[in-house]
Design a protein around this nucleic acid. Structure first.
Length: 759
DNA sequence: AAAGTACGGGG
DNA sequence: GTGTACGTACTTT
């Protein structure tokens, strides 16, 4: 019998598991889509005593597993061990792993996301250009070739037919989670045209269903699709008996579940539920960190290099992407992937821990306004150090290289085996550098390259935190300490290099330093000298026309790290630590500070700044006048916060506690980590419920505490004006004065604090 | 003065 | 991908 073979050429678009394998969707260059089943089975590996393996065989008995003996490398020891590999049908995999856990065996490769594992094994990745051969009779995959490279800089992507779904209508719609706010109308967009859906809900659903069939979009890009829109559409669809073909795979509707709260890195975050489609992508712009930060191009870049399906990559934290890249590297190297992070921290006496557990080096800034200051930054310092020093969980304190010591702390690093983390990071550093260059070119794709460079930036920023993250699969605190120790060494050398040449260091912060320059200084020669003596690539961030290092509010005599603002010679503003950088600052204040700084950025000297000061003060007065006339809207005044507790857990009467409780009393109970927005209505009102108004409950004329907001405006203005002009006399409070230390050490643990999408 | 609560980070 | 960072700044009591 002759087998009829269908050849499909195009971009690998979507992949998800079905009971008997992986369903793969392909978009071909002619705009058509195809799908087939790859009867692939996920695997897992185990090692243990003969009796444990006997138990395993029993546990696997009814699952139709295929078994074979093979070998793999243990990550930490580097030795090769014998393991029994089992392949089971996709539907049975999870249950099998649970059963095997109980046998006490060491399990490997057992909890990799199945589609990621599938990509690793097949050698392809989301949006990879491939050629597939499919048995036309069964629809099963026979063979495939990869015609793409995840490390290629310029690659072709399919033209995606995109449908947009969002809400419009009421004043606050789109700005707050519709779960806790008045909802606007449904807006549907396609190829640049937006339609507001009208009429009875039933008709709206019919229209949507019609458009979905007619347009057949590849991507549905929503706002609040995960938490509200998609679940709501599903409910309506059922209620009004209007089937909505949201997924292309008619057999699968919308997949996904509810959200959850968890605590990580000192704050509670709420992770929205997710709504995945099959054969079509759903991306919720309000629930995708990557999409928000670097757009669709950045997101696709991450999906490609991390080999994570696009819809999942959109909602993943960067830690997930990093882990996936590490697991892929391990797969390629034949390294066994441990199930959970189980490597305990090595025992060390308490004194040693104290020395080793310091973070990045920070010097207290010289507060005040300065002119002619140069800022140098070590580019991607931590990832560079990891690559150059070979810092990885399995290379730190290896048995073979005790002489290769890390400065200052007792650890040493392997010189014989290249670490997994450096292997993963090296190509990312290279690719990012190339994209940064391309982003500055005149190429019509410069913006695309910029988005990809930004995506890489985030991966590099997070890789350090992830190295020390207790729960990271490939994390180990000792390797984290090596990185910070090397970083301190580099910054110290830089400081000495600068000071030996007679330059005063005004501030230094982990991987940046600010030096007092002056007329005639050759900043490029200075940069080269510091770079040479510190041993890590150094870039000139710029020369400031003026910069202000702000004093501490609590201790007006001392400076605080990372609270400064200044204008570079090209007019670029750099701002850290001011109210405008905080999420909880009302837009009204952010706008005022932004306006003031925009004007100041045009001043070429301190004297020019001082001349501008009165005009800046008038801006403040104008803002106050608008406040008095009521020419402000609720969104300008709203304070946005993430609640860390459920309403009943709040003990105090802080504004956020009152707002959360008021919302709860109207049946809108926020979960931990969710976003709360409220206006201060009457700050000191004896009736607590009247003090603040949640944005979601606003109705009628806007009531706000004019005096309170005027006070806030004042404070925001003086954050910038202080030192430029005499401040109006205020009742001065006596404050204790503490001795400022010369150098501070800042523990830096910013793993993935900014998670996927707590909006 | 103390307790409670939230934020930042990189470019 | 699920852990109690640390320092600053603000609020209420």
């Amino acid at each position: 019998m002759v087998r009829r073979v269908e050849r499909i050429e195009g971009w690998l678009f979507d992949a998800y598991t079905e009971p008997e394998g992986v369903r793969v969707w392909v978009l071909s260059p002619d705009g058509k889509h195809h799908h087939f089943l790859d009867p692939w089975r996920p695997g897992l590996k185990m090692a243990g005593t003969p009796s444990q393996l006997g138990d395993a065989r029993i546990a696997l008995g009814k699952t139709n597993a295929t078994l074979r003996w093979t070998t793999g490398t243990d990550l930490y020891s580097g030795t090769e061990i014998e393991v029994l590999e089992a392949r089971v049908p996709a539907r049975a995999h999870k249950g099998v792993v649970e059963k095997l856990k109980a046998t006490g065996l060491s399990l490997y490769d057992a909890d990799i996301h199945p589609v990621q594992a599938y990509h690793y094994e097949r050698g392809h990745f989301p949006t990879a250009r491939c050629a597939f051969e499919v048995d036309a009779a069964t629809g099963h995959l026979l063979d495939w070739q990869l015609r793409d490279d995840p490390w290629a800089l310029d690659y072709a992507l399919p033209a995606l037919k995109t449908m947009r779904l969002a809400l419009s209508g009421s004043e606050t719609a789109g700005k707050i989670d519709p779960n806790h706010a008045p909802r606007g109308r449904l807006v549907m967009g396609f190829s640049g045209v937006e339609h507001e859906l009208e009429g009875p809900l039933e008709d709206q659903l019919e229209t949507l269903a019609l458009r979905l069939r007619e347009w057949d979009p590849d991507l549905i890009l929503t706002e609040w699709g995960d938490s509200w829109l998609m679940p709501q559409l599903e409910l309506w669809s059922e209620k009004y008996k209007v089937p909505l073909p949201l997924s292309r795979d008619a057999g699968r509707g919308v997949v996904g579940g509810g959200g959850r709260s968890f605590y990580t890195y000192g704050r509670t975050v709420y992770q929205m539920g997710v709504r995945y489609l099959s054969g079509r992508w759903h991306i919720d712009a309000r629930n995708s960190f990557m999409h928000k930060e670097s757009g669709l191009h950045g997101l696709l870049e991450v999906a490609r290099i991390a080999r994570i399906p696009v819809q999942r990559a959109a909602r993943s934290t960067i830690g997930t992407s990093l882990t996936s890249m590490q697991m892929h590297r391990a797969f390629l190297d034949g390294v066994l992937i441990p199930m959970d992070k189980q490597q305990a921290e090595d025992f060390r006496p308490a004194t040693e821990l104290l020395i080793a557990d310091k973070g990045g080096l920070v010097y207290e800034p010289e507060t005040g306004w300065h002119e002619e200051v140069v800022e140098y930054d070590f580019t991607s310092m931590y990832p560079t150090l990891m690559v150059e020093w070979n810092i990885s969980p399995e290379t730190v304190n290896c048995p073979c290289c005790p002489e290769n010591k890390v400065p200052e702390i007792g650890h040493h690093l392997c010189t014989r085996r290249k670490g997994l983390v450096p292997k993963v990071l090296a190509p990312i550093l290279t690719k990012r550098a190339a994209y940064k260059k391309l982003a500055k070119s005149i190429s019509p794709k410069a913006a695309v390259f910029k988005a990809r460079a930004d995506a890489h930036k985030w991966i590099l920023v997070c890789c350090f935190g992830y190295l020390g993250f207790k729960n990271a699969r490939f994390g180990k605190i000792e390797s984290h300490e090596c990185v910070t120790a090397c970083g301190r060494e580099v910054l110290l050398r830089a400081k000495e290099a600068a000071e030996n040449r007679g330059f005063k260091m005004l501030h230094a912060l982990v991987d940046s330093l600010w030096l007092q320059g002056g007329p005639g200084v050759d900043y490029e020669a200075l940069r080269r000298a510091i770079e040479k003596e510190s041993g890590v690539p150094l870039a000139t961030e710029g020369v400031y026309k003026w910069i202000r290092f702000c004093p501490s509010r609590m201790e007006p005599g001392s400076g605080v790290p990372a609270k400064y603002f200044g204008a570079l010679q090209d007019g670029t503003l750099k701002v850290r630590g001011l109210a405008l950088r905080r999420r909880d600052t009302p837009d009204l204040l952010k706008r005022l500070q932004n306006e003031m700084l925009a004007r100041l950025s045009r001043a070429d000297s301190l004297a020019a700044c001082e001349r501008l000061a009165p005009a800046l003060l008038r801006l403040t007065d104008a803002a106050r006048a608008r406040l008095e006339d009521g020419r402000v809207d609720a969104c300008d005044l709203a304070i946005t916060m993430h609640v860390s507790k459920t309403p009943d857990e709040y003990r105090g009467n802080s504004p956020q506690a009152i707002a959360a409780k008021t919302l709860a009393s109207r049946g809108l109970s926020l979960r931990r980590g969710e976003t709360l927005r409220f206006v201060i209505a009457s700050a000191k009102d004896p009736v607590k419920e009247w003090r603040v108004t949640p944005l979601a409950l606003l109705e009628g004329p806007l009531e706000f505490d004019e005096r309170k907001y005027a006070q806030l405006l004042e404070r925001a203005a003086w954050e910038i004006l202080e030192g430029l002009m005499p401040e109006p006399a205020k009742p001065e409070k006596k404050r204790p004065r503490r001795n400022a230390p010369e150098a501070l050490l800042l523990p830096l643990i910013y793993a993935d604090g900014l998670s996927s999408g707590s909006a």
